[in-house]
Structures are given as C-alpha cells and as structure tokens.
Nucleic acid binder design. Structure first.
Lengths: 129, 129
DNA sequence: TTACTTGCAAATCGTTTGCGATATA
DNA sequence: TATATCGCAAACGATTTGCAAGTAA
C-alpha cells in the first residue's frame, strides 16, 4: 500500500459525491501535487478488485466511484449527473425470481433511479414562474 | 426521414442483440456501403430523442441500442458483454416507494441483472472438468 | 428553395499503457 | 534487494463535430 493508494482510498471514503476519476484526481492533487491521473486510474482499478471500493458503471459516459463497497442502489440526476445513494432496501429476492426464467447464471443486479436533484428541479421550476 | 435514418431504424428493430453503434454500422453498410459511422451515431441519437428506440447506458464502455422503445429490463453477460431482455415484469411501484424518501423528483428507474450467458458459463464450466 | 442531413476527416473525451525512475516490503 | 508502483507522455477506442456537398419536403 503506497502513499498514493492510501490517500486515494481515504479521500474516496470521505467523499459522498461518487466522484469520477478526474474529480478525485483534483482532490488528491491538493495533498500530492505531483500525482498523475494514470496513478489514480490504476489504483481505483486495484482497489475495486480488492473489494475496498465500487466502480459504478452507471448511465452516462464516465465511470464514477463509490468508497462504500457494500451493495446498495443509486439515484442519478438526469440534468447534472449528480449521484446519491437511493434510500431503499436491497431486493435480494429478485435474483431468485429471474433464476429459473433465463439461461444466464445470475451473479448480481443493479438498480438505478433517474430523476432531478433538488437543485436542478428548483431551476426547472423557476423557468415556469 | 432520410434513406439512411430509415435503414438504421429498420435494422435496429429487426436486431434482437442490442448492438453497439459500430455493430449496427457494419450491418447497415451491407445495404449502403457509403454510409458513415458519424451518420449512424447522429441518427441513433435523434431516434432515441424521438422515442423510437432506446439508448442503453448500461455497464461496460460502449453504448448499446435497443429497437424496442418500451420500458423493460436487461441481463448482461459479465464476460462477453452480450445483452438480453430480462424475463421479469416491470416494477412501477418502486418509484412510489422511494418518492417520499428523497429530495429528488423521480422520473424513472433502470434495473439490470449481471451474470454469465449460457455460452460463457459452459466455457467456464469446461475449465473445471 | 431552404432547412436538414450526409460523408469525410479531424478533434475530443475518458481511459489505458509502455517506459525508465522510484519507493515499498 | 526484488517487486510493485510511480510520473510522464503517448496511444487508444468510442463518440462527437466542423465543413462543404447533397437531399428531402
């Protein structure tokens, strides 16, 4: 565990905004100005393989990362891309439900809500005043 | 509606494999050898804004497209990226469930199962013989 | 005829990788 | 000391875009 990997993990754990690699790079750079973006990508990959963090392959082009490795769902703002945890319990049973219905061997599932975050909703509402 | 847009839509409607833009480009090229990849991308974008097709922003790097514009869920092979429709009914109620629990205004949700397709499962099983 | 769309090629964006130098265990 | 990791910069793959020419309504 290098100094770089430590800082990346710590900062991601603190950050509740599910940052992209680039956003996390900007944060980490404040502590280690010479760190490279490649190092951030490499360590995020390694940390997610170790199960310390999660890679979120969610709508949109760029990947986002979650310092919380436990299974949970997300809400995504369709306007600004902000991501929050979804306040809804895990539905483990739906994997059993589908199991006999398909030839796939199921290993997991992903649920994502799409909507407008409070900020973007307010801005949209203003336009109708 | 240009000839290009017509062919792209027709071919996507016929294709049950949820192809990527590039895969669809190869198919369409058989009918229109001079069509460009840019045209395919542009039309897929337009058709999905019109609600004629769906853009699937699902795990993995590249986007895939679905000629069926109705809401439904998908299963993705974690090994080869193949995507099939998930044989499970829509759960509209979960949007109500989350509605009071968050400051977001919810507009939809997306559910994706992750597993091994029959082919990849067989190959993986062979390795243990 | 006029706005929209095309084919082409270059640009862009996020991400990955090869390298020689450096740090960790 | 041996191996893993680093910073840097160049490469990569998917997607987008500017432009002049062509096409649909």
């Amino acid at each position: 565990m290098t100094r770089q990997r430590r800082v990346i993990l710590d900062e991601l754990r603190k950050d509740k905004s599910h940052p992209s690699a680039d956003e996390l790079y900007e944060t980490v750079r404040k502590y280690m100005p010479r760190i490279s973006l490649g190092t951030v990508y490499r360590n995020l990959e390694i940390l997610s393989e170790l199960g310390e963090i999660q890679k979120l392959e969610i709508g949109g082009t760029l990947k986002r990362f979650d310092g919380n490795p436990k299974k949970h769902y997300h809400i995504r703002c369709m306007n600004c891309g902000r991501i929050d945890d979804a306040p809804i319990a895990l539905m483990e049973h739906i994997e059993n439900e589908i199991d006999g219905m398909t030839d796939y061997k199921i290993f997991g599932h992903r649920l994502e809500f799409i909507g407008l975050c409070p900020d973007c909703f307010d801005k949209a509402a203003d336009r109708w005043q």
